[in-house]
Design a protein around this nucleic acid. Structure first.
Length: 592
RNA sequence: CGGGAUGUAGCGCAGCCUGGUAGCGCACUUGACUGGGGGUCAAGGGGCCGAAGGUUCAAAUCCUUUCAUCCCGACCA
């Protein structure tokens, strides 16, 4: 239903709009999106990592939410709303009450019962569904919500980018089997692509760690921006893209050198006070690539394991974790190192130690047979270590973090690193929660089975921040038209000229009647102020009406993205405006 | 959690070392001028100097405690 607007019936007049802009950058803002969101009067901080959304900011957030909602509905998901406060029982049942750690904000009610603020809703949704679904005939089901989440981040920062309270869309799919779950997964994957495209972001889906699930069933959707907190490896030639923690490093193509007959006998060398790779290498005058780092780690707080990595490489602990099959991996503390190696930190080595402890070596270490390692003795290293001759390696595997000089694990061509902001994540959960929480149904044969789940998140408030990270200039935000607080701003330069004010008002009404989001800057401000604020807030389209323009029968236009200025005739304004608007959207690579 | 820094008007900051009635810019109010890129002039309003203790005749300033905020780090043996 279109509502017709009478004069004075509209509220989108800046003279009565709450948009407290700032001339100066707030002292505590580090990144551009944070500074601009504050300066443009879109958000205000309440306390660390927790923000008020002001009218301009909320409009933008709501537009993102609307698009996400439409794409979820189109994909067959159904919207629900779950409570933010959740009982501890459910988390105990899933095993996450102990596992989730300090990010989970826990509270007690007046009876002393434990609750938490939901950082995510797997438990609640599983509980909701298990009680109601008992037959394969009722599956699949995909439920989603758009809601505030709370995660007590170690270090909230960057405004909306890493807040503690934030708005997230989370969806959960329930299927009767793996096949169905995979179908649900890829449907969400496609829905996400559609949503991010409509929002107007430059993004890339990348492979992410899927933990125990394995396979290709975890993707992160990254907004490409230099200020991103995540690094992604992507191929210059093929479609490959992966989170750094996920990116595979292929085993070396050269065959292993298992012939250690030429390796000299093991030799102990004194390396006083040389603990780090750099110190040892400097002392022995060798390259870090000739040394093996021996990393002592603890799996799930218990079992120690040994990871061997070339001196110039970095261990990817997620790869190791997946290999050893634990939940959590941490570096051994000083005491444990002393306990196991009999030496202070800095002198651990695989010789002898590898015989007692599970030992994993990065697969490139098989290329050589003559290494330097620690000797499990203070101030001492070994020269001429052969892993084959002197150690017991349980497995050679991909253990290190990919480097930009590595080749694409899929096509072998060059890769590059780029920075990204994670705005979406699709994940196949499998039966992790349905098993723990006993969410079952009867299949065609009357057999009890666990539902196969997937979860899918989109950071709604973070999207607004990332859109600004990706689109801004020295004057302010440059919003993609689909999520701008207002698509168009009419700037009246009326001064005391009532004819100009009347005409601006009229045009405002006409645009509003088209169903386009328009705001009208009718304030008694100087032109410079209006221009500067319009640029700061970043409406993609600006229409400027002044006395001269009115006399000449034109209104001026400005494309915020390109800065390009033009004119539209006041006769046949609606047609001309519609055409211009179409042009602007097309410049954003989007159709209306 | 470890390291560093900062709390003074709505915002951005000075003053603190060397104790003596609290200042600047922006914003706000009023008036005049101005009127196409955050304008000018004039006159105003607004502060328990984060909180609590202490030292002192006297504390924004010195001391102690505490709270808050921000930055860096939190696997590389």
């Amino acid at each position: 239903m279109k509502r017709s607007f009478a004069k004075g019936d509209l509220n989108m007049r800046l003279s009565r709009y709450y948009v407290p802009t700032l001339k100066e950058d707030p002292a505590d803002a580090e990144v551009m999106s944070h500074k601009l969101l504050m300066r443009a009067g879109m958000i205000r901080k309440l306390t660390s990592g927790i923000y008020n959304y002001l009218p301009m900011g909320l409009r933008s957030i709501n537009k993102v939410a609307k698009i996400v909602r439409e794409e979820m509905d189109r994909a067959g998901a159904m919207e629900v709303s779950m409570p933010m406060v959740q009982p501890a029982d459910l988390w105990v049942e899933s095993g996450r009450w102990d596992y989730y750690g300090k990010e989970l904000l826990r509270v007690k009610d007046r009876h002393g019962r434990d609750y938490c603020l939901g950082p995510t809703h797997e438990e609640v949704i599983t509980d909701l569904v298990r009680g109601e679904i008992g037959s394969y005939k009722q599956l699949p089901v995909n439920l989603y919500q758009i809601q505030n989440k709370f995660r007590d981040e170690i270090r909230p920062r960057f405004g909306l980018m890493r807040g503690r309270e934030f708005i997230m869309k989370d969806a959960y799919s329930f299927d009767k089997d793996e096949e169905g779950a995979e179908k649900s997964y890829w449907e969400m994957f496609e829905a996400y692509k559609a949503a991010f495209s409509r929002i107007g972001l430059r993004f890339k889906p990348v492979q992410a760690d899927s933990g125990a699930i394995g396979g290709d069933f975890s993707h992160e959707f990254m907004v490409l921006a230099d200020t991103g907190e995540d690094t992604i490896a992507s191929c210059k030639s093929c479609e490959f893209g992966a989170n750094l923690e996920k990116a595979k490093v292929n085993a070396p193509e050269d065959s292993c050198n298992s012939d250690d007959s030429a390796t000299p006998a093991l030799e102990e060398v004194g390396t006083p006070d040389a603990r780090t790779v750099d110190e040892v290498c400097a002392y022995l005058n060798i390259e870090p690539s000739k040394l093996i780092k021996t990393l002592l780690l603890k799996v799930d707080g218990k079992e120690p394991v040994l990871a061997l990595i070339r001196g110039d490489r970095e261990l990817n602990d997620i790869k190791l974790r997946n290999l050893v099959g634990g939940n959590e991996i941490e570096m051994a503390d000083e005491d444990l190192v002393k306990d196991l190696t009999g030496a202070p930190v800095g002198f651990a080595g695989p010789v002898t130690l590898s015989k007692n402890i599970r030992t994993f070596a990065d697969h490139e270490l098989c290329l050589d047979n003559d290494w330097v390692t620690g000797a499990n003795k203070a101030d001492t290293h070994y020269r001429h270590v052969s892993l084959a001759r002197d150690c017991e390696i349980d497995k050679f595997a991909d253990l290190r973090v990919i480097e930009e000089t590595d080749s694409c694990p899929e096509c072998g061509k060059e890769i590059e690193f780029t920075k990204g902001i994670e705005v979406g994540h699709v994940f196949k959960l499998g039966t992790k929660y349905s098993e723990k929480m006993d969410a079952t149904f009867l299949d065609e044969n009357g057999k009890t089975k666990h539902m196969v789940m997937g979860c899918y998140g989109i950071g709604v408030s973070r999207i607004v921040a990332s859109a600004i990270e990706q689109n801004h200039d020295e004057n302010g935000c440059i919003f993609p038209p689909a999520i701008a607080p207002f698509e168009v701003a009419i700037i009246s330069l009326a001064g005391k000229d009532q004819a100009v004010a009347d005409k601006a008002e009229e045009l405002y009404n006409e645009i509003a009647k088209l169903g386009v989001d328009v705001c009208y800057d009718d304030r008694k401000e100087r032109p410079g102020v209006k221009f500067a604020e319009a640029d700061l807030i970043g409406y993609p389209m600006q229409l400027v009406l002044g006395g001269k323009g009115l006399k000449n029968g034109i209104i001026e236009t400005k494309d915020r993205k390109t800065g390009e200025k033009g004119e539209l005739p006041l006769d046949n304004f609606v047609e001309a405006f519609t055409a211009w608007r179409k042009e602007i959207w097309e410049k954003w690579g989007m159709s209306l």
